[in-house]
């Protein structure tokens, strides 16, 4: 007896489910790249070819460095998932304009090789690669990493650094409302204060962040609770002592908060998987950011806050394992 059809091309055999929604790691990474377009546009608008140079160096070194590392480790090529490109771009946006190319390249290599591939590649890294790259540069080259080439020549310090200097000297904070109108700080186009390539325009970052939210690439929990926690603490301190604290809106409109909250803290691999875990993670990021800004030695604490909470992410997941259907209690951790 002949079995119909079986002699033609064989049927595919694999376990259920047999269909997929069509998402992919590469697709998600592409969405992040698209969402960063406004921030990149502002960076180029403000810094011209210098921004192009830093982005080119960081992205190409990240991609080539990852490919070389995978080759050396005799593993399959992984750059086609675009995660190395995202890491490179995010690092570039975290660097000050004018940073020497070799430093940027070094940071990019540290990010993809040491922070990512040495741990096993995308999915196995504990810390956000771009932030590891940035912090290694910050610690290794503190002067270069805090020298801001002034396109508008108002001041050579970032708003947060200017405030920290004044605060450390016991002086009243600079009259921010006069130097940096809030609207300019938020738009970050001209008189928007200094800062890293991609952090100056909260408007551009918000646009990209909302795109990621709308495309369901990220959830609202991490960015909004991160920013919300900083806003809450800033309001509290400002209400208690307005003379010695920055206004809460100035806190939000300066530094790397939006870049960190929308694009760095939301990194899948290094943040918790449970919703309550993500909430605690975001609140932790906000608290540590504010503590460093207000009391720490560095003017800005977003990078450190995220890296510290990256380390806590597996623990947060264990603490927040949901109660499975049909179980009385949550699974013990």
């Amino acid at each position: 007896m002949t079995i119909p059809y079986s002699d033609d091309r064989p049927w595919i055999l694999s376990p259920s489910p047999h269909v997929h929604e069509g998402s992919s790691v590469r697709g998600l990474m592409r969405e992040v790249l698209i969402a960063l377009v406004p921030a990149v546009a502002v960076a180029v608008f403000r810094n011209g070819l210098d921004a192009v140079r830093l982005i080119f160096v960081c992205v190409s070194v990240a991609v080539l460095g990852e490919a070389a590392a995978r080759f050396a480790m005799r593993r399959t090529l992984s750059v086609q998932d675009l995660s190395a490109a995202v890491t490179g771009l995010l690092l570039a946006l975290n660097l000050p304009p004018g940073l020497p190319s070799w430093m940027a390249a070094l940071g990019s290599l540290v990010a993809v090789v040491i922070a990512k591939q040495v741990f096993g590649g995308l999915g196995y890294n504990i810390f956000n690669p771009a932030l590891v790259g940035r912090v290694v540069l910050l610690i290794s080259f503190p002067v270069a990493m805090t020298t801001w080439a002034p396109p508008d020549a108002v001041t050579t310090a970032t708003p947060l650094a200017a405030w920290k200097t004044a605060w450390a000297a016991g002086a009243p904070p600079p009259a921010f409302a006069d130097i940096y109108p809030l609207r300019d700080l938020f738009l970050g186009l001209r008189n928007g204060g200094l800062g890293s390539l991609g952090e100056v325009s909260e408007a551009a970052l918000l646009l990209g962040g909302l795109y990621l939210l709308a495309r369901r690439v990220i959830g609202w929990e991490i960015p909004f609770l991160f920013i919300g926690t900083v806003a809450l603490l800033a309001s509290l301190f400002y209400a208690l002592d307005p003379a010695r604290n920055l206004p809460p809106l100035t806190h939000l409109a300066t530094g790397g908060l939006f870049l960190g909250a929308f694009f760095m803290a939301t990194d899948y691999v290094t943040s918790p998987v449970t919703r309550p875990g993500q909430m605690l993670f975001a609140i932790g990021c906000g608290v540590i950011t504010f503590i460093i800004r207000r009391f720490g030695g560095y003017p800005e604490g977003v990078s450190f806050a995220i890296l510290i909470m990256n380390g806590a992410a597996p623990l947060l997941d264990r603490l927040t394992i949901p109660r499975p259907y049909g179980h009385r209690r949550r699974t013990s951790s």
């Binding site: 998987v273 919703r275 993500q278």
Partner: peptide
């Protein structure tokens, strides 16, 4: 129509956690 893919390492995005009707942690 059918899903035939190369398998990647888990990137811990948590999408399965939100999709699971039994509230398990499929990724973990």
């Amino acid at each position: 129509d059918v899903a035939v893919y190369e398998t990647h390492a888990c990137i811990a995005c948590g999408r399965c956690v939100r999709a699971c009707p039994m509230s398990l942690l499929p990724c973990t």
